[in-house]
């Protein structure tokens, strides 16, 4: 089973690489180069905050776009092009296929994020001449962005398992936007009463809590990130992704392939 999942995951990764998905790294490098003259005109402390904020935002935006737009076609494209037929006619379970696809795209995002992070640290080193403890703290921000990708890929995969790519893209984008305001929705639920309170609360638990995974500003200002938040976010991302994969499998296992 592990070998079949690994084969599907590697094929998904290879497809993304050969479809030139990693070309976004060039845009990221160009962005860093374009920022250089701007950074030269401001003070050293602000320079760092700006570089961290812009770099992490770019890592997040590029990664989210890749997660959604590759994620929504993970299953539907295979059905549409019928590349799935020779796969599922072999001793491959539909669950193995779904899990392999998930790991394949997660691996792509991991490599992409690692490459961008290296670019960021090189730029930071060139700017400040050294790397300190506060800079290591940025790694936590990057780690949380990766967790965010895991959640978004799970959602995109779920929508891809039963819907068309266009509808999946709309659903996934809507969930991403709503998830970015999950904290506000919970705050609203705490302030209101009656059925509205329960609806807001229920919705806030269904949509992904992406707001909690966003610590970019905090790491840019070298604020302390508690270990409990790291643990909570890790568990949350794992559980949420597992739930979306399970739902995707449930829907996909009943689906007739046209």
């Amino acid at each position: 089973m592990t070998r079949r999942v690994a084969a599907i995951a590697f094929n998904t990764f290879r497809e993304a690489v050969r479809d030139r998905v990693l070309y976004n790294l060039i845009f990221f490098a160009l962005l860093l180069v374009a920022m250089a003259p701007l950074l030269g005109q401001i003070s050293i402390g602000v320079q760092r905050v700006l570089l961290v904020n812009l770099s992490l935002s770019a890592i997040s935006v590029f990664g989210t776009i890749i997660s959604i737009f590759l994620g929504i076609s993970l299953v539907s494209k295979e059905i549409e092009k019928r590349t799935l037929y020779p796969v599922l006619s072999r001793p491959v379970g539909r669950g193995e296929f779904i899990v392999g696809k998930y790991f394949g795209l997660s691996g792509t995002l991991f490599v992409n994020t690692v490459a961008m992070s290296l670019g960021f640290y090189i730029a930071l080193f060139i700017m400040s001449g050294r790397l300190g403890r506060a800079d290591a703290n940025v790694l936590l921000g990057i780690y949380f962005i990766l967790l965010q990708f895991l959640v978004i890929i799970g959602l995109a995969l779920l929508f891809s398992s039963f819907s068309t790519p266009i509808m999946s893209a709309l659903f996934a984008l809507a969930m991403f936007v709503a998830g970015s305001f999950a904290g506000d929705l919970r705050a609203f639920a705490a302030m209101t009463h009656g059925p509205g309170k329960w609806m807001a609360l229920a919705t806030s638990y269904v949509i992904p809590n992406l707001a909690s995974l966003n610590v970019m500003t905090r790491v840019a200002h070298d604020q302390f990130i508690p270990a409990s938040l790291v643990l909570y976010n890790t568990l949350y991302a794992i559980c949420y992704s597992a739930a979306t994969i399970a739902a995707a499998l449930l829907l996909f296992s009943r689906r007739d392939l046209k």
Partner: peptide, 23 residues
């Protein structure tokens, strides 16, 4: 399958390795 379509980013050797591993 009828009118087969395969992963066009792969070469025949890679494709056969992939399907062989799945089998």
């Amino acid at each position: 399958p009828e009118q087969p379509y395969f992963y066009d980013h792969l070469t025949p050797i890679e494709l056969l390795n992939y399907y062989g591993a799945l089998s």
